[in-house]
Write a protein that binds this DNA or RNA. Sequence first.
DNA 1: TAATTTATGTCACCGCATGACAGATGACAA
DNA 2: TTGTCATCTGTCATGCGGTGACATAAATTA
Lengths: 210, 210
Amino acid sequence: MGLRERKKVQTRNALIDAALELFLTQGYEATTIDQIAARVDVSPRTFFRYFSSKEDVALSLPADSQEIFLAEFAARPDSESPYAALSASMRAMIGTLRDKDPEEAARFLKARRLVDETPALLAGQMRLLMENEKRLVAEVARRQGTSPDDLRPQFVVSIFTGLGMICYNAGPEGLDIMARRLDDVLTLADRSLRPGWDLAAADASSSAAG
Amino acid sequence: MGLRERKKVQTRNALIDAALELFLTQGYEATTIDQIAARVDVSPRTFFRYFSSKEDVALSLPADSQEIFLAEFAARPDSESPYAALSASMRAMIGTLRDKDPEEAARFLKARRLVDETPALLAGQMRLLMENEKRLVAEVARRQGTSPDDLRPQFVVSIFTGLGMICYNAGPEGLDIMARRLDDVLTLADRSLRPGWDLAAADASSSAAG
DNA sequence: TAATTTATGTCACCGCATGACAGATGACAA
DNA sequence: TTGTCATCTGTCATGCGGTGACATAAATTA
């Protein structure tokens, strides 16, 4: 890897660190791009060459974790039911996060804390989630053998997204807490849902695109 | 009602109409506050005296409908289970919308269409939803006899929120379609969930606040 | 009509975000 | 090492969103 590339990731990480630091101490809105740039000794214009917006830098780590989740999901064997694959991917994501070096894990937790206490960022995170939702629905539909326009894959994804939010948003206290919370939620789900609920049952189609 | 008040609601509605019109024809981001204000013959500064942001005017109608839902929910008898009360409130909300005068219903549908095709607004709508979520969880906890910090009321609300999103977001084509979609989703839910799933079962507590 | 309240317009200002251009710096071949 | 090229960066200018301050116009009340 050349010097140029190394410098780039270095600047990028520095910007993230500076941003998180300032956001957490002064508050998200109270922090300006100029302050972040100044702390990294970079022009404000350069900030926007690394991140498309103020929100972007705050959500870059959560966005990464979502990408990890999606990658895990895509890698699950077809033998698993949609819901089983989704649950396993969630567990795998937490595991992956835990295996990273401590520095990066700390960054992630900082970001999680920040998002948790900033409504605007919570909304942004939801937006990320929704952008991925289509991909998720498509994959679930494939596993079910139904159409992505069908109500059933959307149903499964919606249910799971709700569960994911509970444990994801409840875990700025550490990845262990988050993992435990996930277990609790999945236990609750097992108790509430009928076996095979996520498989393509008889009718209930009523396609109709959104 | 005095002239002053009448003028205010008039201006407000004019701003909403102008905004929706421009948003739908030019696109949300491509439309400026100045354009909206100009169309109503009002200074841009005045726009912000009626709406706190560009997003606010676009989401004012969806926000209203959420308020209606919450009001309906608060009015449901305690004899209903949490999930039953939530479902009934959703139906009632659609009914209330349908009973309004056609002009206002048209505005609502316009807003729904707009939100549907604008990711930023979709996210904003989710933010509104999440702001109300606490209230919802508290009410469900009361009905269950559990603590709002408990996982179970959160679980019920999350599940229902997912279902609500499916039918809500699928209905820019009219309130009738939206009602039918709701029926389909609830049917699917009845088939997937065990009877009494939304009641406070044995343990599964593991409180832990977010 | 006079006094008070309140809505509106004007002006100034800040922060976010983007395009354009010039200069600095690393990459690479001779 | 040197020269060329690609790319990163800083500076400048601009537009839009959003807010505070103040004066003016309009409605309310007496």
